[in-house]
Design a protein around this nucleic acid. Structure first.
Lengths: 127, 127
DNA sequence: ATAACACTTGAACATATATTCAAGTGTTAT
DNA sequence: ATAACACTTGAATATATGTTCAAGTGTTAT
C-alpha cells in the first residue's frame, strides 16, 4: 500500500516515479472527487446494477410488482438465487416489498434507478 | 440450472413451486426485458462504475486529462493497479488515451458516463 | 550505448460474490 | 394438528476480480 506522495516538480516536466508530475492538475482533480463515503455509496448503486441477473430483476419490476416465484420465472433463475439478490437490492433500498399472506410482492423503490437504467439502455442502443 | 417452466394456472391463484402464478404479469415483464446481449452490455457499464477505485479514476478525469502517474496520485493507489483498471475502462471505451513521448494521458471518452455519474451523485447527496 | 523513466503486462494471491443445496420460518388449506 | 406452500437464510462451492510483484516495452536523456 502506498503511504506517501512526494512532490518533486510543480510544473509538467516528465519526472515521475512515486512523485507527482503536474501538481496543479492533481490538486484540481482531487477537488473534483467526492468524499470516500459518498464514493462508496455511488459505487454500491452501480455495482448492484452491474450484475446481469440483478439488472434483469430490476427491469422485470419496471412496470409491475411481481412475487418471487414469478420473478424467478421471468429472469430464468431459481427462487433461492432470486431471493438472495432481492435481499441485496432491499438492503440498498432499490426495491421494496409488500406481504400478502404467504406471497411477497416486490417492486421498485427508487425512482432514480429507472432513469439511470433508461439512460444506459439508450446509450447501449446507440452503438 | 433451471430448464423448464410449466404454467399451471393462468390467473393469480397462489399456486407456485416451479410454476408460474400470474402468467400475464410474467409475460408482460418478459417483454419489458432487453435481449441478453444488450443486458450484458448495460451490466458491463454499471459494473465498471461499481468499483470504488475505478469510479474515482473516472471522476478524476472528469475535467482534465491525466497521466497514469498523476492518476495514481489522485486516487491514492499504485501505478500498476491504476494501469490495470485503465485497461478495462479502455476496452469498454469509457476512457481514451493519447501518447506524448513516454507519457500517456487518459481522458473520458464516453460523454454519457458523465451524465450517469452526475445523476448518481445527486441521488446519493439527496439521502 | 547505457541508464532512467512512464507505463504495461502476466502470474500469483487474496478477497468478493453468485449460485446451489438443505434447512428453517410463517402462512394457508384441509 | 398436519400438510402444502412461498419465501428466506446459512453454509458450501465455484468463479470472478482487484492488487501486488516482477519483468517487459518503448521513449528520452546522457
Amino acid at each position: 500500500m502506498l503511504l506517501y506522495w512526494v512532490v518533486k516538480k510543480i510544473d509538467a516536466i516528465p519526472i515521475c516515479k512515486i512523485e507527482i508530475i503536474d501538481l496543479q492538475k492533481v490538486s484540481s482533480a482531487k477537488e473534483g472527487l467526492v468524499d470516500d463515503e459518498k464514493n462508496q455509496s455511488m459505487a454500491r448503486i452501480f455495482k448492484l446494477l452491474g450484475e446481469p441477473t440483478r439488472l434483469k430483476i430490476i427491469l422485470s419490476l419496471f412496470d409491475n410488482e411481481l412475487c418471487v416465484c414469478d420473478l424467478a420465472a421471468v429472469v430464468e433463475s431459481t427462487v433461492s438465487a432470486v431471493s438472495h439478490q432481492l435481499r441485496l437490492l432491499r438492503n440498498s433500498r432499490l426495491v421494496k416489498f409488500r406481504k400478502a399472506g404467504k406471497m411477497v410482492y416486490y417492486s421498485i423503490e427508487d425512482a432514480h434507478i429507472k432513469q439511470l437504467i433508461e439512460q444506459t439502455k439508450q446509450h447501449v442502443e446507440e452503438n
